[in-house]
């Protein structure tokens, strides 16, 4: 068995060496396309985690109508805490808020001014994506100022969401296109191998080598190209992650970036590349190896 496997692998290696340029082109294109597709998947994972992390930093301000009593304030807070997507609710009494506000100005400016601030709440979100729904429900709570009583970073959240959608479409589009190109390159590389090794194939068929023995070297070649390309893509992704992570540490207040998932990247992209290479090489040998 071992001698058989070594023969088949040897044949695949010979075939790859004969078309080195095409083999190189196929591997690098698989690497770049899987880097893009893997990178998009990774970015989505990172942004999901980052969104969850920063959710706590996004606050929603809720203002009560003038004249709301303390029991009514308590009831409002209770209603808000019960909403799905809300992490915590803090009451900001209008007197405390005014006292804090006055410290920002010279005493003579605010000396005879009546407290213009309403009672307010700081609402901390657990899930940013639910902000709009939570805001809508809060507006229905009695004694909430429905005109400007609920303020949150709606525009920023929408921007993040739109950016993610754009990233998904552009990244998937370019990645898929490159994956298609790499598939064509693997297909061509294998077809060239079949052509360059037609004499070997003919000899194998003449002496009674099984169909599998004749075909498997090409499948190994295509699978190896996909696998190496996938592993290369994982390495490029790791390098990109390392570069971006160092910038994030320097610029961001979001904390340390998550570590690069080496095992998942190598196994995942390697596997995808290998399967893709196998499929492309199988398609490539179907016609010329018929019979």
């Amino acid at each position: 068995m071992i001698h058989r496997v070594s023969f088949l692998i040897g044949e695949a290696a010979v075939a790859s060496r004969r078309n080195l340029t095409m083999t190189f082109a196929a591997i690098t294109t698989v690497a770049v396309s899987l880097f893009l597709l893997g990178g998009i998947a990774y970015l989505f994972r990172v942004t999901d985690q980052a969104t969850a992390l920063v959710a706590a930093k996004f606050e929603m301000r809720v203002y009560a109508l003038a004249g709301t009593t303390n029991p009514q304030i308590s009831e409002m807070a209770k209603s808000m805490r019960a909403l799905d997507g809300v992490s915590a609710v803090f009451w900001i009494p209008r007197d405390k808020a005014w006292a804090k506000e006055r410290t920002k100005y010279p005493p003579e400016v605010t000396e005879n001014v009546e407290n213009p601030l309403p009672d307010a709440f700081k609402v901390v979100m657990a899930d940013l994506q639910k902000s709009a729904a939570v805001a809508g429900k809060i507006k229905q709570i009695p004694h909430v100022d429905t005109k400007q009583g609920v303020q949150y970073l709606d525009a920023e959240e929408r921007f993040v969401d739109q950016a993610r959608t754009l990233l998904r479409w552009v990244g998937t589009g370019i990645g898929s296109l490159l994956l298609l190109v790499s598939g064509v390159l693997i297909y061509n590389a294998i077809r060239l191998s079949v052509f360059s090794r037609r004499r070997e194939a003919r000899i194998m068929m003449l002496v009674g080598a099984s169909r599998l023995t004749v075909r498997v070297p090409y499948l190994i070649e295509g699978t190896a190209q996909g696998l190496i390309g996938g592993l290369g893509g994982a390495c490029i992704l790791a390098a990109a992650h390392s570069a971006v992570a160092s910038k994030m540490v320097a610029l961001s207040s979001l904390g340390r970036p998550m570590p690069f998932p080496w095992t998942e990247a190598l196994v995942g992209l390697g596997l995808v590349g290998a399967v893709y290479g196998l499929v492309c090489s199988y398609v490539a040998i179907l016609l010329p190896m018929k019979g």
Binding site: H3, R4, F7, E200, I203, M204, V207, G208, A209, T213
Partner: peptide, 11 residues
């Protein structure tokens, strides 16, 4: 040798 290996003979 090539022909023999292709029909499954050992070294």
């Amino acid at each position: 040798a090539y022909a023999l290996r292709s029909v499954g003979k050992s070294r």
